[in-house]
Design a protein around this nucleic acid. Structure first.
Lengths: 219, 219
DNA sequence: CGTAGGCTTGAGAGGAATCAAGTGCGGTGG
DNA sequence: CCACCGCACTTGATTCCTCTCAAGCCTACG
């Protein structure tokens, strides 16, 4: 909440985020079909969201880290339309949506903030659609890694080294690829001197090369 | 606006949608980078939205028809992040977002409505991500056609026959396929007795078969 | 110390892209 | 009114990227 708020507004917003909930690794914060009551602000930990098609296939729709909001999918039908699974032990703020709506009718900055969060998610999804619809495996992985370090950097982490909280299979599901293709593409990046990988630990040796894969210089 | 509203609220909402704008075929309602000021409610006509990557490729992110809202992408950064192009002569209501926000602070039902529209767009995008990430060409096209007739039916049109307002290339872009693959897959559906096609006119002969392609009965 | 799950790597198959040629409709102008 | 042109579309041949199937490895964990 980066906005200009008076002390009273801040106190009332604090009340909304008063309730906490812990979610252990592999446990779900909510599931498809669960009644929607609250949005969740991630305080610590790492989540994935996934949707399932009727015939059993599923697709990871996003990875969320501390500071991000999860649960927006539930607003439209009063029930969640995806699963949110913790990839490591996590803690979230439970924010009852009724109270968010009530307070955002009074606090303009909060209303604005809510609208921006939802719009940001829509724009992010369009970016993923672009990735899934028109990029090849190397480009998808480059885009994924660059997006990840950028978000981590904004949180004060190293911009070259980080730990993947998700498996190759989960990355593959997010990117519309198989785990083998993720593994092979990562191996290729290592062979090309772009990455160093030790299990889940990734070091980006040559970020410009990743950027070049995404935006070929000849364009 | 399907909500219980008193006469005064209705009058004020009417004021918001008072301004109209006509957009001719192939013209844009807004472009990437345009300053965001308003949402648009489509009164008549058909639009596509598309995002562009830096190296020139682009991706259709959606097709919008009468009754749908367009422009939500612009809220987060006060500028639009996609292009909206009319696929046929169209008319929209211009709804200044400042006024929407102001009025939705006072009219609970309007606030709710806005939140639902944004959430619905997020859920729709997740569905497209599932399609792009895990379906084969036939499944994608079946899903597309079924979605299209369902939306047309909700507007009182035939549930078996309709006119495609977009080219094969635009369908292909939306589905992450080439125009040739769209054409071939449509031809196959015709050969299988599922569709009849005359140029842009499509008749769904066997909707159950389309549904079966999407959900193989053995699952 | 043994095992399971996650990962890597290889070989082969397959689905969609690409490249290419040709068709037909609609619009334009003579 | 008709001929011409361009654009959207169809269809075929070939290529290539990714999937699938398979085997084996490594590491964390019980």
């Amino acid at each position: 909440m980066p906005a200009a708020l008076d002390a009273d507004d801040l106190r009332r917003i604090d009340e909304i985020v008063a309730t906490r909930r812990r979610v252990r690794r592999r446990e779900t914060l909510f599931r498809t079909g669960d009644r929607f009551t609250s949005l969740f602000a991630i305080r610590s930990g790492f989540f994935k969201t996934r949707v399932a098609s009727e015939d059993g296939r599923d697709q990871v729709t996003g990875f969320q880290m501390a500071g991000e909001i999860i649960g927006l999918d539930g607003i439209v039908n009063d029930e969640h339309s995806c699963d949110a699974v913790a990839l490591e032990d996590a803690e979230v703020c439970v924010m009852p949506f009724q109270r968010i709506e009530a307070l955002s009718r009074e606090v303009k900055a909060l209303q604005r903030h809510i609208h921006q969060i939802m719009s940001r998610e829509i724009v992010r999804d369009h970016g993923v659609m672009l990735l899934l619809g028109s990029m090849r495996a190397e480009e998808r992985l480059a885009a994924f890694l660059l997006n990840l370090v950028q978000r981590l950097r904004a949180r004060g982490f190293s911009q070259s080294e980080f730990i993947l909280r998700m498996t190759r299979e989960e990355i593959g599901s997010y990117m519309g690829l198989t785990l083998e293709t993720i593994s092979r593409t990562m191996s290729k990046f290592v062979a090309d001197g772009i990455l160093e990988i030790d299990q889940r630990k990734v070091r980006i040796v040559d970020p410009e090369a990743l950027q070049r894969i995404l935006n070929p210089p000849g364009c």
